[in-house]
Amino acid sequence: MQYDIEIIQSPSVFSFSLDAVLLGEFAQVPKHNRAKIVDLCSGNGAVALMLSQKTASPVTGVEIQERLVDMANRSIELNQLQEQVMMKHADVKEVREMIRHDSVDVVTCNPPYFKVTEESLQNPNTHLAIARHEIYLSLEEMMKATAFLLKTKGKAYFVHRPDRFLEILDAMRAVNLAPKRVRFVYPKQHKEANMILIEGIKNGKETGFTVLAPLFVFDQNDQYLPEVRRMIYGAERNEE
């Protein structure tokens, strides 16, 4: 990974994946130490830890699953980032009780992607079911929490699924998060997009919406393409 950090994870409980790396890369955070940054649905803290390498400002992760919070806290200690990164064990819907309204400069979120079905409720791995399905947090609830936290002109960054793109735009605009930039992520050329990255601005103007160049992950030999390889491994590995 290009970030000089180690992240504790567990395949049986939760492992961060490419979507977290893409979100950490896509999010634009101030380099100075005066901003307030919050990562919702923080999981094992991967995105929060990545963001800490791009800014001198404090980063707060919010995660509902206690075991994932424990993993994140161990990663924070392992990387000696206790002064900069903090985890809150909390439901995103209750975040208004612990973080002040209109006080945050940047919110990131890698939320549950899928609506709840009978199958998701029966998933034998509860940790994965909660991370992937809207069991405790719906899209609308996530957007309301984001808008509550952000200052006017504060920025929000999400990674999600293309099949919910229109729903996401509607949910953003319903809470005055103006969509500003979107990037579609494709597993490889000639395949359908399987992820989207979206930037929104609190109380931003409706004008100026930009669709960025597509991001292709793999070449035809299932090797990471240079842009993604740089995100994961850094410039040195990319140049080999």
Rank of each mutant, 00 (worst) to 15 (best):
N110D: 03
N125E: 04
A156P: 02
I168Q: 11
R132E: 02
E118W: 08
T117N: 14
L150D: 09
S103D: 06
E134V: 14
Q122T: 06
Y113Q: 09
F114Q: 01
R164N: 08
L121Q: 13
H133E: 03
K151W: 06
T152S: 14
N123H: 15
V106Y: 01
E134N: 00
A147C: 07
P111Q: 11
R173Y: 08
I135Y: 10
I168P: 06
A129V: 01
G154Y: 04
N125F: 06
T152R: 14
H101W: 11
K144M: 05
R173H: 11
I130P: 11
T108E: 05
V107F: 06
S138N: 11
C109G: 09
N123Y: 15
N123P: 04
V106C: 01
L150W: 05
M172D: 00
Y157P: 00
G154E: 00
P124T: 09
T146M: 05
A147Q: 01
T152Q: 12
F114R: 07
Y113A: 14
Y136M: 10
P124M: 00
V116I: 07
P162K: 13
I168V: 15
K151Y: 03
L128Q: 12
L150K: 01
H101K: 15
N123R: 15
H133S: 08
F114A: 05
R161M: 12
H127Q: 13
P162V: 01
K153P: 00
M142G: 15
L169D: 11
F114C: 01
H160W: 12
Y136V: 01
V116E: 09
M172I: 00
E141A: 15
V116G: 10
V107S: 04
V116K: 02
Y136D: 12
E119G: 12
R132S: 08
F148M: 08
K155H: 13
Y157N: 02
E140G: 10
A131P: 07
L128K: 15
E167Y: 05
E119A: 13
M142T: 13
V159C: 02
Y157G: 01
